[in-house]
Write a protein that binds this DNA or RNA. Sequence first.
DNA 1: ATGAAAGCGCTAACAG
DNA 2: CTGTTAGCGCTTTCAT
Lengths: 337, 337
Amino acid sequence: MAASIEDVARLAGVSIATVSRSLRGLPDVAQSTRDRVLAAARELDYVASPFAARLASGRSATVGVVVPFVNRWYFAEVLGSIEGVLHDANMDLLLYNLGDMAGRERFFRDLPVRKRVDAIIIATLVLTEAEMDALRSLKVPIGVIGVDHAGFHSTRIDDRAGAATAVGHLIELGHRRIGHVAGDRADPMRFTPPHHRRRGYIDRLAAAGIDYDPSLEVLGYFTTHGGRLATEELLARPDRPTALFAESDEMAYGALVALRRAGLRVPHDIAVVGFDDHASAALMDLSTIRQPVRDQAEELTTRVLAAAAGDSAEPTSHVLPTELIVRGSTDPAHTIY
Amino acid sequence: MAASIEDVARLAGVSIATVSRSLRGLPDVAQSTRDRVLAAARELDYVASPFAARLASGRSATVGVVVPFVNRWYFAEVLGSIEGVLHDANMDLLLYNLGDMAGRERFFRDLPVRKRVDAIIIATLVLTEAEMDALRSLKVPIGVIGVDHAGFHSTRIDDRAGAATAVGHLIELGHRRIGHVAGDRADPMRFTPPHHRRRGYIDRLAAAGIDYDPSLEVLGYFTTHGGRLATEELLARPDRPTALFAESDEMAYGALVALRRAGLRVPHDIAVVGFDDHASAALMDLSTIRQPVRDQAEELTTRVLAAAAGDSAEPTSHVLPTELIVRGSTDPAHTIY
DNA sequence: ATGAAAGCGCTAACAG
DNA sequence: CTGTTAGCGCTTTCAT
């Protein structure tokens, strides 16, 4: 049986209260006493039982992290970043992967985080009023990454401005017919990027006096495969575009495959710009909008942790900058294919 | 304040013991009593405090999941699968992302899972004796995915046989000079696939009476970028290979990029086969060895859960089958580029 | 600076 | 079938 606080107290010749204080670094313990306790604890290889501590203190030293999918680049990146901050702060991380709408409904109905976390971090979901109510009922600080919701801590990028920058880059290169490989705005998970990025696309066209042409817009569903199919569809239409804006790099990869198969040269026949600066974008020589994924996750986690620790500042919404990265897929002096 | 078991007992007019029994579905409770308790619990929106239950019962209903990285395809896939099984079983999932050697050392030194999990699942690490001792000291069932260690539950594939199949496929197509884009065998994380997959490559060459040529072997470090560089290096050598075996699909993608840039046709000039059947392999038209990642994770998790629940069967090692998937990158009737 | 003691909210014998 | 009671291993007043 593992050592308990009583064993340590006995060995150190003090009360369990003193052991508790010493080990947690609380004040009002003589240095000599503390040293004795630390030595005893080390000798017995003692660690406090987290459950006993949590029951007694009412704090769980745990945060719940909710992601729609763990196996997509963006969410995996976010999750890894959060994990780092949390464990550096000696917090446990309870993972919830929604997976699909059924999982999402189950989560908000059952609220499996109840009575077990000091804070919650949720990635990229636009929450319904009912979901927000459910979360608020937990009475713990809540952080949302990628979206902002009043009353919750949030960190995100400006998707709309980023998309406008991407499209502006194409316009400055002289393109007027710009195809749009879009994310699914009707996804039941209600992700926001497709809405904002599309707005940015339309904004920027308008600013350049280019008419918005719905026939240049096809859904790619945020997958590589979808990006390929969408591009094939665009190419099959009369008067094909001279450039493509894909709402995500992963869709852009699919677009590049479709273009290669169609025998079109990039960027000479068709230029392509993506969004995210995904891990493989540099390899694919894809121009894109870089977003600081890890920074967003770390910044948000840090603030949520402060809130959980009692910092009662009002929840705020932070926006981090994006950056246009020009690579071969739009550089006329270059050829990918 | 949230309702406690006493509130429920009072409302239902029974003792807290009866509430506990009713809610947990234990026997020896009159149906009418149970109904009353359930109604009271629902009315008060009661859920038991997990910490109190864990402290009293000694069971944590939690499993620790340890991965080297969350943001690599294989591990993300594994993590997602484990999460599904765990939450279906009403278990909490505590995530530990090692990240690098420093993180790995810290994990095994501090053992942050101590006193908080009923079982541990670890992905793809070859454990040192010291690490195994540390884990054993926890006295909980341990599952390892991708490797087998005596005394631990494990599920894996036969990497060696899979690699041999991949190389055999190339040999049957008539190839004799087969380049090898290899994983790093000296990685301090000590992953096993590079060792086994390389053995399979060498085995199969030997079986076909082909001399092993070290100059055909270059490290690609399991990254897309590394695969590209490795391939470029292979192409720069005299008497270049007519086919490539990449130890992972992600490295194979890099190889395809390098071949395209070099103006070589696939599979006519050089055929390529990968390993894993990564999510994008179909899109890239890459022939590969499919491994059932989710199945491995689910099978292992299920067994570990049984062990944690008291099934005292000896830990065993299970091997799941792989399958050759032939696509355009090796099909002579086909052209990728 | 230290100790005694009262919980925290459950589970698990044990009685009846 | 149900209730009583003794913990589980800590944290946290409150004394001293």
